[in-house]
Design a protein around this nucleic acid. Structure first.
Length: 273
DNA sequence: CACCCCACCTGCGTGC
DNA sequence: TGCACGCAGGTGGGGT
């Protein structure tokens, strides 16, 4: 499900429902996520009240009133539902937090690549230390990226996917941002000039903002059991559209595998230089 | 360092 | 119908 916009949409949807809720029970499925706190650590959250929800990159942070933090990463297929008992049971549910209001916060994850980890008061989750600049950070500048990448050969697509540099860009929005900038995905980052970095940063911000405003690319299942058919409101221009005509020039779009991930681009609008 | 590869999982669509 | 295969929006550990 989730790149930065989807996680942000989930955060905004859940925050008004969860803040003020007290956890009264935690049940854990038999199969564990790739990274998941021990059962007793999760059970220790019982009695705590949610004071805030924040986001860092693709990580969602649930802040509790005694200072603990619940770090949630949805991986590829993780979903969070805010449900009542009236909702039918879902498959692949690995964690259920029962709440004082009678609602439940349900974590579902088919592939179990997600993470749910508890951290004590005052401890910063180590994973966050690796997370790069937020896309809207004032410290994210063309000059900084230019300086950081001089003489590097790494393809710009792979650079965008590296969350240690800019946080939250995933495989979909990397292709979309490069198309918007008319930049070939294999362009070595060291070859990119200041002006192009400026345009790329702008494109990233615009595309992510639009995606958030539209409710994410896919199903944002924070609501209830109806599993709200996701607004496919974001119109992707190139992602997943190999063979279809480029929306700019009509040339068939191309799929290319880079670092093991599908990459989509227009060979005419995004020429190799 | 910089960068790549693969592991970690399940499900679904496609083509034989 | 069955089966093998490729593919899927994530990270992170280990190798070159």
């Amino acid at each position: 499900v989730p790149e930065l916009p989807e996680v942000e949409v989930i955060r905004r949807g859940l925050a008004p429902k969860l803040v003020g809720e007290t956890i009264v029970g935690v049940s854990q499925g038999g199969q564990r996520l790739r990274r998941q706190s021990e059962p007793d650590e999760l059970a220790a959250l019982i009695g705590q009240t949610v004071v805030d929800l924040s986001r860092r990159g693709k990580y969602l942070l649930v802040h509790l009133d005694q200072g603990q933090t619940l770090l949630v990463h949805l991986g590829m297929t993780g979903r969070l539902f805010y449900q009542t008992d009236a909702c039918p049971a879902l498959p692949h549910v690995h964690l259920v937090f029962r709440l004082h209001s009678g609602h439940k916060l349900v974590y579902q994850d088919v592939r179990r690549f997600g993470q749910v980890l508890v951290y004590p008061a005052g401890v910063q989750p180590p994973a966050l230390a690796q997370v790069g600049l937020e896309p809207w950070s004032r410290r994210l500048t063309a000059a900084r990226l230019r300086q950081q990448t001089t003489r590097l050969k790494r393809p710009v697509k792979n650079f965008l996917l590296d969350g240690r540099i800019i946080a939250g860009i995933g495989n979909i929005y990397a292709s979309e941002a490069l198309f918007a900038t008319r930049l070939h995905p294999q362009t070595p980052v060291g070859d990119i000039g200041l002006e192009t970095w400026t345009q790329l940063i702008r494109a990233i911000r615009r595309i992510l903002s639009q995606a958030i405003a539209a409710g994410g690319t896919t199903i944002a299942n924070f609501q209830d059991c109806e599993g709200q058919s996701g607004l496919f409101a974001v119109q992707l221009k190139v992602y997943g559209r190999a063979g279809e005509p480029c929306p700019g020039c009509g040339t068939p779009l191309v799929r290319l595998v880079m670092a093991g991930r599908s990459t989509f681009f227009c060979p005419r609008c995004q020429p190799e230089k």
